[in-house]
Design a binder for these strands. Structure first.
Length: 538
DNA sequence: CGGGTTTGACCGGCGC
DNA sequence: GCGCCGGTCAAACCCG
């Protein structure tokens, strides 16, 4: 049995057919190098299909296209095999040593080839990571610019824009309450609370400078030392804690504060992204680490609402609420808010991208028409062009919320291959590589097909939780991994051509003032202070 | 023992 | 002013 065999399998580590490389964000099929040997009427076939993979984001495909998926080892294995075959005809004893030497040589060559491929693979991963970083940085920068632009507009038109928006809100949602985040003062007020609440509240004193938005400043838990309850803690904590997600704090905007980067952050912080997904688990997995800090019974829902905060980094202001839908308890509603102040793992990037994209779009849509960036309808369509009927806008909530409804059947156009890799739709949907920030999504799409609807709502209390479209009864087979589901949502947003178009439009409309504040467009993507992401999961 | 969870109390906003 | 409600805190508790 050993005679004439070369164990090509020993060349590779024992990996499953589809291995998820965190950095790549999509499953890579690690197949055996193609090597066909015959001996004693037995045949060993191993393929050099090392780079076979499920569809990655477009950008990845582009890179991979330069590297043939099927690598020609140039080992002329067939010839060798022929010899091997011949040896099977002969007694095999005389050529056995030669065969072994030949196979050994081939083995060495294969190993070299594999090393080369590994190097290339590594390089590709690095490139992907770089591109992802650039994407995220660009996205965050865009948000900052948009907010700055909005601030400029408001400072000149003061009140006019708000009036328009209110009218728009009334028209769309019929609510009587204007979108809160537009209530921020004409100067953009969206100053973060550590500067904002001073004038309106004596209970907090600030030690930070207006620019002191240092995300790394002080550990909130450390600052919150003690008995003095929250007041004392906040007093000494100008950091993220004070930037907390409480909408109440955000209402205390100081119009006199200059607009700066924190403006965008604060504004974004007010925008929540809610994800509805079916899950038996108590919490979805979004790539981040969370610590539960509270639980409350919310009105109108027999299921308690759990409050979590991100613990991946000290002082990370990101919070999330998890609550089961009152109407369908199999549906888990996770609402994210805040901006991570730390790098995110690949798995969390998907959610981060989702939040950033959704929040960006939501906020863009909230801008006055004068900005020409987006309107609610465009927003809705951009986020989910094929499900516009499910996109609704409400103005009855204190802060804008984007709801990603992942509980419906897959969109027939984009998710028509529930059981197969989402190669076609994925590649087609990302002509501009805007989805590179959500690389793990490929894996998500590979595994799930639940995404189908997205709701835009500002009514957290009702619209968000109440079903806005018929929901199919729970089917066990339709329970994707929530991480996947969320990733799919991220993909849905970031990969949408309309989103890219909107993004491009926004960039062009703002580019004039894009001189830039924080050049975050380096490869160190997730660390940007303007990062708006907020999802994570676990 | 350290870290996470539970849970009752506290706080501020909002509507009446 | 009062009560309701959402959000947060932090001591007590639990767990590995």
């Amino acid at each position: 049995m050993d005679k004439g065999w070369v164990s090509s399998q020993s060349l590779l580590p024992p990996t499953p057919d589809n291995t998820m490389f965190p950095l790549l964000g999509f499953p890579v099929k690690l197949s055996r190098p193609t090597m066909e040997l015959h001996h004693d009427n037995r045949k060993l076939v191993a393929e050099v299909d090392f780079f076979s993979h499920t569809p990655p984001p477009n950008i990845v495909k582009k890179e991979l296209d330069q590297t043939p998926l099927h690598i020609n080892t140039g080992l002329q294995l067939l010839t060798a095999n022929t010899r091997s075959d011949q040896s099977t005809v002969d007694d095999g004893l005389s050529s056995d040593a030669e065969d072994k030497r030949a196979k050994t040589t081939e083995l060495a060559q294969l190993q070299v080839e594999l090393q080369r491929m590994n190097a290339e693979n590594k390089k590709l991963k690095e490139m992907l990571s770089h591109v992802t970083g650039n994407y995220t940085a660009l996205q965050m920068h865009l948000v900052t610019l948009m907010q700055q632009n909005q601030q400029r507009t408001e400072s000149t038109e003061n009140g006019v824009a708000q009036g328009k928006v209110e009218d728009k809100n009334v028209g769309v949602g019929g609510g009587k309450v204007p979108r809160q985040f537009l209530d921020i003062g004409p100067s953009g007020t969206a100053e973060v609370d550590d500067q904002v609440s001073d004038s309106s509240s004596d209970e907090r004193t600030r030690s930070s400078t207006p620019q002191n938005h240092n995300i790394e400043a002080g550990a909130r838990d450390g600052a919150r030392n003690n008995n003095g309850k929250s007041q004392l803690g906040r007093e000494e904590s100008p950091d993220s804690e004070s930037q907390g997600w409480s909408p109440n704090k955000l209402q205390k905007m100081n119009p006199s504060n200059p607009m700066d980067q924190s403006t965008a952050e604060a504004t974004m912080r007010k925008a929540r992204v809610s994800v509805r997904a079916r899950s038996e688990a108590p919490m979805i997995s979004d790539g981040c680490q969370w610590r539960k800090y509270g639980q409350k019974m919310a009105k109108g829902n027999p299921c308690p609402r759990a409050y979590y905060r991100c613990t991946m980094a000290v002082g990370c202001p990101v919070r999330k609420q998890v609550q089961r839908c009152a109407d369908d308890r199999t549906i888990l509603v996770t609402t994210y808010e805040g901006t991570h102040n730390h790098p995110l793992p690949p798995a969390a990037m998907a959610m981060a991208s989702t939040t950033a994209a959704a929040a960006t779009m939501l906020l863009s849509g909230s801008m006055s028409s004068a900005d020409g960036v987006m309107n609610p309808n465009l927003l809705a369509r951009a986020i989910l062009p094929c499900s516009t009927s499910m996109a609704t806008l409400s103005a009855s909530a204190p802060f804008p919320t984007v709801t990603l409804d992942l509980t419906h059947n897959p969109n027939p156009l984009q998710f028509q291959r529930p059981g197969a890799p989402f190669q076609v739709p994925f590649l087609q949907a990302q002509p501009q590589n805007f989805g590179s920030g959500a690389t793990p999504i490929a894996q998500a799409l590979y595994n799930q097909s639940k995404f189908s609807g997205l709701q835009l709502s500002q009514d957290v209390g009702s619209s968000q939780l109440a079903p806005q479209a018929p929901r199919p009864p729970l089917q066990p087979s339709q329970h994707p991994s929530l991480a996947d589901t969320v990733s799919a949502a991220a993909w849905a947003i970031t990969s949408d051509p309309n989103f890219t178009a909107v993004l491009a439009a926004a960039i062009s409309s703002i580019i004039g003032g894009a001189h830039n504040s924080n050049n975050n467009n380096n490869s160190n993507n997730n660390t940007s202070r303007t990062t708006i992401s907020s999802f994570s999961g676990n």
